[in-house]
């Protein structure tokens, strides 16, 4: 499974977060990688519409996440607009951002993963 996350919105525009960042499942502890796979399944990711949530009017600095998952020849991209209230989708986003953060920490010299 291949996962990419792209973030927009929030307090500023960060080009580094806005371009797709890959979450390398093989670099994660096996339990975390497995939890992430299960989140994708539980969210029925490949059946989701291209956009989840609607930007409420007058909501500056709201955030958007674009998630792309590739698995077994399938590839699907979904844009999530906060707030994402559906519990399984919320959990999926939490897990992906957590994994991406852990990966980032691990890549930083002198910082324990």
């Amino acid at each position: 499974m291949h996962i990419e996350i792209k973030r927009e919105g929030g307090p500023a525009y960060f080009p580094g977060l806005a371009r797709p960042r890959e979450v390398d499942l093989t670099s994660l502890p096996p339990e975390q990688a497995e939890a992430l796979r299960q989140c994708v399944q539980a969210a029925r990711f490949f059946e989701l519409p291209p956009v989840v949530g609607a930007l409420p009017p007058g909501a500056p600095d709201a955030r958007r996440f674009t998630l792309t998952v590739e698995e077994g020849g399938r590839r699907h991209t979904v844009q999530f607009i906060e707030p994402v209230e559906e519990p399984r989708l919320h959990e999926l986003l939490e897990q992906v951002t957590k994994a991406e953060r852990a990966q980032r920490r691990g890549a930083r010299p002198g910082t324990p993963g």
Partner: peptide, 11 residues
């Protein structure tokens, strides 16, 4: 939220 990276005015 958890580790939430934002602050916002929601209207």
């Amino acid at each position: 939220g958890n580790n939430y990276d934002n602050a916002f005015w929601d209207g």
